[in-house]
Amino acid sequence: MIKDITLGQYYPSGSILHKLDPRVKVMGALIYIISLFIFKGKLGYIATTAFLIFLIMISLVPFSYMIKGLKTIIIFMVFTALINLFMTPGEPVFTIWKLTISKEGIEVTARMIIRLISLILGTSIMTFTTTPNQLTDALERLFRPLKIFRFPVHEIAMMMSIALSFIPILVEELDIIMKAQKARGADFDDKRFTKRVKALIPVLVPLFVSAFRRANDLALAMDSRCYRGGDGRTKMRPLVYHKKDIMAYLILLLYLAIVIVMGRL
């Protein structure tokens, strides 16, 4: 049910990607996103798709598991595809009622779908291979220069990592509360909308109560361990670049160069 949502869920397959420094993966995802939008010709698609397939292969995450994540945004994709298909003016191919599909429309749609799928898969490879905590670590480190502008980098990273670590806890709690209310005869599958919204009250009230209780406990626990923000705080496992991380950066730059060159052709 709720647990079936795999978009961006960590998948521990122990691949080389998992062992990379999270900063490399964040930058990698960024570079990949940029690479998707800087080319014009058809060759660019070949380059970006080939690189994506390469990443999927070395990530050792089952492809079926990734596809499951795509399902959740399929409606969004169909919607954008339809708008592009019908709204692009150009040489008409065929007409249904008042709607005309043009040759250009088909081309634009195809390109857009490929870009969208690449974008989602590319970024989810990062989240499939990086735990949320590693991710916040990386972001905290990457955004550190912003401290000069008094931007609270550490505080935001801490909030993010707390929020992220609460998600699985709350999902599990939600699951238990839903089951407990189902055991009391609650019906969450009713067809009528108002009934379904009403059925959520017995779930949301306990969930909020428990979220506040947990937040309160956590605040106390942090306080009693003398947490006072990021100044002078050291890391137990500081992020250090290794040889393979440098290699990964080089591969990424090489890839970006290839896309730029191929996009010009």
Binding site: I176, I177, Q181, A183, I201, P206, S210
Partner: peptide
């Protein structure tokens, strides 16, 4: 009756 059933009161 689930474990910690009091968490389901609403």
């Amino acid at each position: 009756v689930f474990q910690y059933p009091e968490h389901q009161l609403f």
